[in-house]
Amino acid sequence: MRAVVQRVKRANVTVDNKVIGEINHGILLLLGVEGNDDAKDLEYMCDKVPNLRIFEDENGKMNKSLLDVGGSLLIISQFTLLGDARKGRRPSFTEAAQPDKAIPMYTKFISSMKEKNIFTQEGEFGADMQVELVNDGPVTILLDSKKGF
């Protein structure tokens, strides 16, 4: 699994001119599922994202997690995170999981965050979404469950 983690002051996602998910202080998470991802990859992301220390403590150091600050989470499925643009000029998405595999992993991730009592909103899998955010910092972190970077 791959993710782009963005610390935000606020974020929302719109489908067909209707806001379907909206948060204030927290994380906007773009999440991509790879074809060979398994339960271990899901477990890694479910632990890493809410515990990632990217929020400032009383000394201005990034030392607190989403759980520590009681922040919210907006999760957007994004298969394009698995795009490979090393050859040619058009990315290849062959490494991205097909919907029959990606949707269950995406929904299990969302369920896991809700079980941790994180206020969680989500986009619509496969929809044409518009995402707006105010990146706080800016802070943007890349995650890969296979630790490819």
Score class of each variant (00 low, 15 high):
residue 101 K to E: 11
residue 112 S to E: 13
residue 95 E to K: 15
residue 121 Q to A: 15
residue 101 K to L: 13
residue 82 L to W: 06
residue 98 Q to C: 14
residue 112 S to K: 04
residue 71 G to P: 01
residue 128 D to N: 14
residue 99 P to F: 09
residue 67 L to C: 10
residue 104 P to G: 09
residue 74 L to T: 06
residue 113 M to E: 04
residue 88 G to A: 05
residue 84 D to L: 01
residue 81 L to F: 04
residue 105 M to C: 11
residue 85 A to T: 08
residue 63 N to F: 10
residue 86 R to E: 07
residue 128 D to I: 13
residue 127 A to L: 09
residue 109 F to I: 00
residue 126 G to A: 08
residue 77 S to C: 13
residue 69 V to S: 10
residue 89 R to Q: 12
residue 65 S to G: 03
residue 71 G to W: 05
residue 65 S to C: 04
residue 126 G to L: 09
residue 63 N to G: 00
residue 114 K to I: 15
residue 125 F to I: 02
residue 76 I to C: 01
residue 95 E to C: 03
residue 125 F to A: 08
residue 65 S to T: 03
residue 118 I to A: 05
residue 70 G to H: 11
residue 103 I to E: 01
residue 119 F to K: 14
residue 64 K to C: 07
residue 124 E to K: 15
residue 108 K to T: 10
residue 126 G to N: 01
residue 70 G to D: 09
residue 116 K to L: 15
residue 90 R to E: 11
residue 92 S to K: 15
residue 71 G to Q: 13
residue 95 E to V: 04
residue 92 S to R: 14
residue 115 E to F: 04
residue 72 S to D: 14
residue 73 L to S: 12
residue 83 G to K: 02
residue 123 G to R: 05
residue 120 T to K: 03
residue 69 V to G: 05
residue 114 K to R: 15
residue 116 K to E: 00
residue 86 R to I: 06
residue 90 R to S: 08
residue 77 S to E: 07
residue 92 S to F: 03
residue 112 S to L: 13
residue 126 G to M: 02
residue 80 T to I: 02
residue 72 S to G: 13
residue 100 D to T: 02
residue 124 E to R: 14
residue 94 T to N: 13
residue 93 F to L: 12
residue 116 K to H: 09
residue 82 L to S: 10
residue 121 Q to R: 14
residue 65 S to E: 08
residue 108 K to H: 07
residue 75 I to C: 08
residue 68 D to W: 03
residue 84 D to G: 11
residue 87 K to I: 11
residue 113 M to Q: 02
residue 87 K to T: 08
residue 117 N to H: 14
residue 92 S to I: 05
residue 91 P to D: 09
residue 112 S to H: 13
residue 76 I to G: 04
residue 74 L to D: 05
residue 129 M to T: 00
residue 86 R to A: 07
residue 104 P to Q: 12
residue 108 K to P: 01
residue 104 P to V: 06
residue 100 D to P: 03
residue 99 P to T: 09
residue 74 L to E: 03
residue 127 A to F: 03
residue 114 K to H: 10
residue 116 K to G: 06
residue 99 P to E: 00
residue 93 F to I: 10
residue 109 F to V: 06
residue 125 F to W: 08
